[in-house]
């Protein structure tokens, strides 16, 4: 078996939804165990599509290994035990009548017994301070609460790699702070996809920059933050925000 140092190793990944326009072009990434890895880029860069390849939901041409397991139809179950995805819109992730059932969904599908499912759900609800919502319907929650329930529904499965698709989208500052705190607290490999460059750079150890389906640079967050021409070229320069803030403070 080919041995790879990183927990996720992607080589020459190509994918397209239709035959005409490729969405992912020759992607190569090596993500280390335990790090917070960011994937940043403008809208339509292919970030979310890449994320869906990590636990075998989409399958393109090329090689993906998760903890030395090659991602293929035969290994889907093992790979999905290792990789959890928190989707951008919690309304797409929460589909059960109650918060409890939503969180228990993955555990029941893993074949766990009722007692263990109950214990694990209660534990995660307590950990994320969601116990009061246990028997509520997820449609009755605020967006921030839904986001936390989505996170709980994945964390309860105890994945080794946790992927967040735009975790800060549509959240207020308090919600963003809560999610950042939760992400930092986890001692597993975390992959964050975000258009919010400042938050991604502040949170991640290393960052890959994607543009038009390609990874154009992978480096430390500090190095990416310093490469202003690159960020400006692909339209995600954060400096204008800093200028605005500076202007307001100066006034």
């Amino acid at each position: 078996m080919e041995n790879v140092n990183g927990i996720i190793n992607i080589k020459n990944l190509n994918f397209s939804y239709s035959s005409e326009k490729p969405v992912l072009k020759n992607i190569g990434l090596d993500i280390k165990r335990g790090e917070i890895f960011g994937i940043i880029g403008p809208t339509g860069a292919g970030k979310s599509t890449l994320l869906l390849h990590l636990n075998g939901i989409l399958k393109g041409e090329g090689k993906i290994r998760v903890d030395n397991i090659p991602v293929s139809g035969k290994t889907d179950k093992k790979v999905r035990e290792k990789v959890g995805i928190v989707f951008q819109n919690p309304d797409n992730q929460l589909f059960c009548p109650t918060v409890f059932e939503d969180i228990a969904f993955g555990l029941y599908n893993s074949g766990l017994k009722k007692e263990e499912v109950n214990a694990r759900v209660d534990k995660i609800l307590e950990k994320l301070n969601l116990t009061a919502l246990k028997n509520l319907s997820s449609h009755h929650l605020s967006f921030g609460e839904k986001k936390r329930v989505s996170l709980a529904s994945i964390l309860v499965m105890e994945p080794e790699i946790l992927c967040f698709d735009e975790p800060f989208a549509n959240l207020d500052y308090n919600g963003i702070y809560t999610i950042i705190r939760e992400i930092k607290r986890l001692a597993i490999t975390r992959i964050i996809i975000s258009q919010d460059i400042l938050l991604a750079l502040s949170l991640c150890d290393r960052v890959a920059v994607m543009y038009r389906g390609e990874v154009i640079k992978t480096a430390s967050a500090k190095s990416i933050a310093g490469d202003r021409p690159l960020l400006a070229r692909i339209g995600i320069d954060y400096r204008p925000y800093l200028d605005i803030i500076k202007e307001i403070i100066d006034k």
Partner: peptide, 10 residues
């Protein structure tokens, strides 16, 4: 998208 979320949780 919902189907993806379901499949990702087995």
């Amino acid at each position: 998208l919902v189907y993806y979320a379901m499949v990702s949780r087995k």
